[in-house]
Nucleic acid binder design. Sequence first.
RNA 1: UGGGGAGUAGCCAAGUGGUAAGGCAGCAGGUUUUGAUCCUGCGUAUCGAGGGUUCGAAUCCUUCCUCCCCAACCA
Length: 563
Amino acid sequence: MSDASKSLNFLEELIEADLASGTHGGRVLTRFPPEPNGYLHIGHAKSICLNFGLGLKYGGGTNLRFDDTNPTKEEQEYVDAIEADVRWLGFDWKAVLFASDYFQTMYDYAEFLITRGKAYVCDLTEAEIRDYRGNFHVPGKDSPYRDRPVEENLDFFRRMKAGEFPEGAKVLRAKIDMQSGNMNLRDPLLYRIRHAEHHRTGAAWCLYPMYDYAHPVEDALEGVTHSICTLEFEDHRPLYDWVLEQDVEEQFFKRPLPKQFEFARLNLTYTVMSKRRLLELVKEGHVKGWDDPRMSTISGLRRRGYTPAAVRAFAEKVGVARRAALSEVALLEGAIREDLEKAAPRRMAVLRPLKVTITNLAEGEAHELTLANHPDEGFGTRQVTFTRDLYIERDDFEEVPPKKWFRLAPGAEVRLKGACLIRCEEVVKDASGQVVELRCTWDPASLGGDAPDGRKVKGTLHWVSAVHAVNAEVRLYDRLFTAEDPMDTPEGGDWRASLNPASLEVLTEARLEPSLADAKPGDRFQFERLGYFCADPDSKPGAPVFNRTVALKDSWVKAEAKG
RNA sequence: UGGGGAGUAGCCAAGUGGUAAGGCAGCAGGUUUUGAUCCUGCGUAUCGAGGGUUCGAAUCCUUCCUCCCCAACCA
């Protein structure tokens, strides 16, 4: 994948500069630090590919570290799902670690900060703290507890740990600068009391560290060299550095200290990308679950039929930079088409069946045909049966064909893929005028696909034999939102307003060629002329359910639209 | 009336003073038993705007404009 001519992104440049100057002794260690409070989405996939990619490229590896510092939100279920998603994407971590692994060290370092007069126990209420903090235009004012003596701070902090105080009664704060223009430096909270069961440490602690304190400590303890996060943490960088730099005698952290770098998070058109919004979609029933194929979650993409390689290729194509960007889903769709074009075996499937009778073929007469599984002969062949009763796609027939119509129409001749040429002789309608059957004749001389007399047909249709076909459910997905940026709502608007009511269409009458009868969940195919499809976990032997991953590009719809 | 960032074609994104890579999308044509794939060709990008420095500026200086992030005991 790495082409010598390919330019480096800014993080690779930074790392190579550090490597050249020997800043970290030639070492590179990155980390991917999810909070186990939800499922990973395509935005996380970008971060995973970035962090693990860098770890791989520069030989140092990457830690998977769960930032489990808030027991009220985190669960083991999410830990398991996140590990599975990272593995599915194809990455291997150097170690699986947890912020909770460091709770004792973090506590010890906090006592150290207190001892050095760098942190204090504050008794202000939550509302008071907010009030004292000021705002963008008004500087904060010092807490009345700011100059509490060291011994008193230590005593209170230990008693906080011992569980003597209720939640909210006291917090530990860094003593930095209540006047700072950077709100993060106005004596940020380091610890808060939570009498809650933690998914890993149980009831061992009732004191939990805040992200801004925990994160740099974790990175330093693990020897992370480049701590890569998204742009919104930019203003937190001075605090990240402050926390580590208080260790002046280097008792806690080895040098050099890790450094934080920020990149722009991924945004995709026609979708939402925050855990909170995704959770709302699930809870409010707009989708069927975290792994609904319309979701931008990794589990959703997987169920939709995306391959890990396609997601990785997408992450590579979208690039890394520091400017907030909104990437087009078309890039993601292009990535999966590109991968599946090479990898997916071809099959014939009729989504909306229209009956075709070959009138000059005897009842019971059958021709066994051999079809290639892929343009690449290495994929081998399979047998299908051509009989008198067939189904073709309803969309492939027009009673009054538009200009440049290559498909079937009264009197028109087309090729049935891998079979023969047929001509439409008669259109049968029901009482309501609906076309219910096409009576056609075939040219026996064209068996195999071409007419010996050299006459050409422009259209080739996919088809299945009625008696041999297996019935299936096929789910067609469209974008979940109709707005490019659902979050960019007009004044007072709700992002849900642009939810696409037609994002899912379930087809229950699809007919598939028999080789698809026992498709296993996760099996991917190209249904000729339609798109790429993936067998859903809802499939049963003999009763497959397919999800459309992405449709094939279709220049006919454009030509038709233009007239 | 604070602090921190960012502005290069429809969307991403290289470029780090020497005269604007690449990908995606789009358009046109060719091949084709998938209107797919594949192949070929196609973009005057006022490099956010003005001013300046320089033989030479997307790159340096300056003024201005626009957009994003920050006021959880979330991460």
